[in-house]
Design a protein around this nucleic acid. Sequence first.
DNA 1: ATGTTC
Length: 472
Amino acid sequence: MSELVRVDEWTWEIPASARDDMRVPARIFADEEILAEIAGDLSLDQLQNVATLPGVTGAAIAMPDIHQGYGFPVGGVAATELPDGVVSPGGVGYDINCGVRLLALPISERELGPRREALVHEISRAIPAGAGKHGGVRLSDEHLDAVLRDGPRALPDVRPDDIERTESEGRLDGAEPAAVSERARLRGRDQLGTMGSGNHFVELQEVAEVLDPVAARAFGLAAGQVTVLIHSGSRGLGHQVCTDYVKLMDARLAAYRIHLPDRQLACAPASSPEGRRYLGAMAAAANFAWANRQAIADSVRRAVRTVLGDAVAAGTEQVYDVAHNVAKVEVHGGKRVCVHRKGATRAFPAGSEEIPERYRDVGQPVFIPGSMGTASFVLVGQPGALERSFGTTCHGAGRRLSRTAARRRVHGSELRRELEARGIVVRCPSPKGLAEEAPLAYKDVDRVVRVVERAGLARRVARLVPLGVVKG
DNA sequence: ATGTTC
């Protein structure tokens, strides 16, 4: 990528002058090795395409875990100025509010001991996994409306501290159940509490290393402690919402005189009827996703109760829950903007009113799942994120091989043996799915996290290593 | 990501 200009040690930029249609620069946080890894794919071309969107402001931004997506790259951030800038469903992605939730158990790995396998097994029994899996909570029309409008607080017996420790308290403003199609509702109505497939998982972990003792204490984490990381999204419901609105907006591009280099960037002014309707449907799907992770967390607590007893289940506290795929109205630099985060995590610094009071002095927790069998990180948002990336950091290790390429390199059965030889308990409905998620298919999460830390976007708090994994 | 090619 010859037109890439180095801005500072961890920031690179393609100037807006590189193409006739770019309105702002395309900027990426990376090191040389990450740049070399993405040189062969289209992710930076996609980032330049994002820089052409009407109303885009600042820069089209990529995190070090960037990889190719549909239209927008995964690991991308784009802010459009309101009221007339566009909103683009592709800038959120098909899995609306895919995200992660971390639970902290009141026991150490040593105390868990040989009950590790039983716990992973109970978790896998409690949570339906795999593509198209039903078997979640079957919702009436009225209850589904309540979930779409209000998120997890519409579920029975939800702990208030779970709600408080969820981004946006699990409820995006402006949710409009009536903007969610009947087909989307049908796909979602029996999927609440199901994991899905692809890179979704529930992982049992141990805090291997505490890097920031003050923040770790605030988050309720200590060395040796057992945690559970839940990664899932809005399932078929969110997928259908994205499908519906990409199609709708694609048909209206000419009416709004919008010219795009890629039809998968289909968008409409955020203030238009189509834009407002999408934002209402997207918020509803996001609320569904938060309710889904709540239902999964409830299942995890039930598994904990079965294996470890009532006291351990009651002492299992939610650290936080973050969205990876969502668009939000925020104020940055005095402007009201619609921040699209696709495979990117909000990372607000200490003092932000958006952070639960108990974390406000340290900053917002962020969770970065590594690839299966490697480490994950707990980070905390830093002021540099507000200055440089609309309050955003990375969301994971980031793919470096396609699913097909990963399957050619390793067999699921072989990978499973390797993981179990390292003491990691594995439960997985599909060996093929396991191979697609092999560590060799992902970038090095330590390097990705180092870039966002050095760039001042987020600071490392703790490193988590897997004890067991339940794959979707 | 996805009733994995409406």
